[in-house]
Each structure stands twice: as C-alpha cells, then as structure tokens.
Amino acid sequence: MLSIDGLRSGYGKSEALHGVSMDIEAGTVVTIIGANGAGKSTLVNTVSGLVPVMSGRMSFEGRDITDLAAADIVDLGIVQVPEGRKLFGPLTVEENLELGAYRSRSVKASEIARRRAFVFELFPRLAERAGQRAATLSGGEQQMVAMGRALMAQPKLLLLDEPSLGLAPIVVDRVFDTLAKLKGDGMTMLLVEQRADMALAIADFAYVMATGRIVANGPTDAMRADTRVQQAYLGEAGVFEG
C-alpha cells in the first residue's frame, strides 16, 4: 500500500533520514521503534508531506507521492495523528473533529454525520465534551480527540506518532485497546512508539530505527526474539517488559 524506497529527507540542509526503505501492506499494522532522535517522527512527517524529500521515492497504492503537498497526501487517505496530540486547543472538540473532515467538504453531510457517530461510539467521552475547548481536556481525552480527528478523514492509512506519550499507564492501555479495535476493523496503521513492548504486541511487522536508518526489520514475532533488537533498543530503553 505504502512503499518507501531509499528515502532521504530533512529540514534545511541537515539530512535526518539517510536512505530509509519500508513497505506497508494493506490491512496490516507496522510499527517503527527506536530511541529518541532516531528519525521516527521525521519519517512520519515526510510521508505526510511536511518534511521535504531530498532523494528517494514514496508511493501509495501505486501512485507516486514523493513531491505531493500535505493536503494532497490527506486527499489520498494518509492521515496522521501527530506526536503530542497537537489539538487546536482554543477550538472545541466538535470544531477539531470538523477540521479532521476538512478535505471531505464535498462529501455528503450524512456521511460526515456517520463518521462523527463512529468517533463518538469509539470514544463516548467525546460526545459529552463536544462543546468544550480541546485545551481543557485531560491528556487521555485529548488523545481521543486527536485520533477521532484523524478518523473523521476516513483514512486508508493511519499514521500514529507516539500515541502513548505523556499518558498514564491505564490511559495508554485504553489507547492500545482502541488501536486493536481499529486493527480488527481492517485499518492499515503505521505506529511509531517508544513503548516497544506494546507496539510489538499489536503490530504485524516492525522496523527498528537508529540515527536516521533502518537497522532491523521483520515480523513482530521474530523481532521480539531477536537479541539484536533487544540490545539495540529494547533493553537499552528499559521499557521492555516481555
């Protein structure tokens, strides 16, 4: 579905990704794990069209997307839940969700209403908070808005950048429950996560990144057992509990 080949990208003159290749099959969940500064967020933001590509190609459903603008990427169905949630804090929950569906303006109102109902069914709390300013919500609720906002665009590929960041353990569990539910619905996801144990538990395939490169990849079962992975990242980060 998404195919990345020899991707180099970065801000200004400094290259942050040094030739990354990756494939995501439709209906699968792929996780990228790696320490802080490994380039995981840069990769996700490059796919979203926010970071300029220096060389390499990206294609989505057979279409070249290397030089597309962020808005065109969203149009194709690649939607990101950014790191740190990045809600429009002064706007209401309802308005945040509406912005998620911004590219769907030509879509029928009934379809938008259906998506909103789906989001509210997934996160009943948001229905209660619809008129509240997003900035006044708890961290967990904000993560729900961020995910709900992305789902309003009806993504084909959902990019999730550190959805557990800064959340209490019990809330993190809920976030992963939601991801499991979405996976059950057949949603294709690219999940960037610091909590490698949880990411590996939900994903089908994993890539390990370090300093802007992919250092290991494989099916998650194999990756969990891979001592290189454990040494390279999991053990070192101290979050591996499996």
């Binding site: 808005a71 969203v74 990045k86 429009f88 912005l99």
Partner: peptide, 23 residues
C-alpha cells in the same frame, strides 16, 4: 463557515492545519 474555521486553525498552528489538509 468551514473556510473560517480553517483560517482560525491556521492561526493556531499552521503545521498541524496542513495535516488536516488545509492549504
């Protein structure tokens, strides 16, 4: 209007507004 909402969103965070598909 939805465009007005987009104007306000860009004012709050231009980068994230791009992730919504706002030009």
């Amino acid at each position: 209007t939805t465009f007005g909402l987009a104007i306000r969103a860009v004012g709050i965070d231009p980068e994230v507004s791009k992730l919504m598909g706002i030009r």
